[in-house]
Nucleic acid binder design. Sequence first.
DNA 1: TCCCAGGCAAGGC
DNA 2: GCCTTGCATGGG
Length: 288
Amino acid sequence: MQPFFFTVIDMIYTTENSIVLKDYSNFSAKDILECGQIFRYNKLSDGYEVFSTDKYAVVTEQDNVVTITTDDVKYFYNFFDLDTDYGAVCNRLAARSDILRQAVEYGKGIRILNQDLTEMLFSFIISANNNIKRIQLIVNRLSENLGTKTKYGYAFPTVEQMASASVEDFARMGAGYRAPYLYDTAQKLKNGYDLSKLYTMDTEMARKELLSFKGVGPKVADCVLLFGLKKQDVFPVDTWIKKVYHNYFEQGHKDSEIACYFVSQFGEDAGLCQQYLFYFQRKYGQTN
DNA sequence: TCCCAGGCAAGGC
DNA sequence: GCCTTGCATGGG
């Protein structure tokens, strides 16, 4: 079968305060930032600004040239996963079915960001039974109220800063019934739980550890595994993915079995596959 | 007004 | 173990 997507990285170079990609396949700031993996970014008139921990970058695109402007080139080179070629997996997935071909075509600019594990854990605790706009609102309030002011805005709060807030503080920032979950998690990390040990674990062990946090269930754990730990053999199942499954895939599985079903189907391509389907369904799947 | 959102914890069986 | 219920909040 004819490949749909280029697999060649044509040109990339860095300067002291920028990364420049020329005719770079599988990179779209819009797809990357609006596919639901990150909550701290803003659309600008000519691109996007992105916040990660205490770092900041601006991404612009013009005439097939992407420019990432930042004080920390090394951080954002890794953040945007620029050493990974997404072409091969795009082609594998697109060949699987019509719905996947459409989803990959629509979201081919997506890349899985290398984000901070702690920021992902707190952010996705907030995400439970919530919508993306309001998650962004709450995460921004956390940063503005507890985080350190930087040249460009506010850093995501450190563990110490998160642990300085009370349940009532988190509630006041709009966290709702998730306020005690944020509080418990902050205290647990402050009191010595070392999240970095998860880097050395396989997916199953790391999931088990994540599930020990209050407010972390199967779906939030899978998001942290995918976006915080870059585990690919996971498939976070939320309300959008349930719609995708029931609309387009072989039926016969209970909702609690959907994640396993997709991982068994797509293996190491599952994580990225999930992002294409999520992004596609949210765009075209009725009413929002 | 009701429904929904990147679900989870707790309680009943 | 599986199933049901309640849950803060803001936007459509």
